[in-house]
């Protein structure tokens, strides 16, 4: 299994996200061949005009959802850390949903089994489609690096512009 430093996940940037839900439509088309946000593995939340974020699976270490399943229907992929669901075992009891702090695992409206982000074979369609470039397929290390660079750029705005 990749270490927590290596695992890539879909990260949302609240300063860029505008809650447009394009990610949801792209996801449902990719996985279900239809347009239906209730079947999307990523969901956008607009609390108000200024607070928007799309949320999907964060590939936790020792995933609480996996631990919570009383039927061993969930396991975490050795290869990329995604949560894999055995639909024969899942009965939709929802323990995993309660265990997830991010609301990233959901009950499917048709199958009534849980479903979650599978990273689209390494090419997440939500990231591909996001018109605001608010989504990144990246590692936690890169996310923190980027945040540092942005913070430092902001701090030294004047120095940087005089260089130009």
């Amino acid at each position: 299994m990749p270490t927590i430093h290596e695992k890539k996940f879909v990260s949302g940037d609240p300063s860029k996200c505008i809650g447009c839900c394009v990610c949801e439509y792209a996801c449902s088309m990719k996985h279900e061949n239809t347009y239906n946000p209730t079947k999307s593995r990523i969901r956008a939340i607009r609390l108000n005009s200024f607070v928007n974020l799309a949320v999907s699976c964060r590939l936790c270490e020792d995933s609480p959802c996996v631990a919570a399943c009383p039927r061993d229907a969930l396991r975490q992929s050795e290869e990329n850390g995604t949560i894999m669901i055995d639909e024969d075992k899942c009965n939709g009891c929802g323990w995993c949903i309660e265990a997830c702090d991010y609301g990233a695992i959901q009950l499917h409206p048709d199958t009534r089994k849980v479903f979650v982000c599978d990273l689209c074979e390494g090419n997440p369609q939500c990231v591909e489609w996001c018109p605001e470039e608010a989504l990144d397929f990246t590692t936690k290390d890169v996310v923190s690096q980027k945040a540092r660079i942005t913070a430092v750029k902001k701090l030294f705005q004047d120095a940087l512009s005089s260089e130009e």
């Binding site: 505008i18 809650g19 200024f50 928007n52 018109p131």
Partner: peptide, 17 residues
């Protein structure tokens, strides 16, 4: 203008809040 947001499914944004 504090933020520019948009509608569902749109690839542009135009709502000047």
């Amino acid at each position: 203008v504090k933020k520019i947001i948009g509608c569902a499914t749109c690839g542009m944004r135009c709502d000047h809040i």
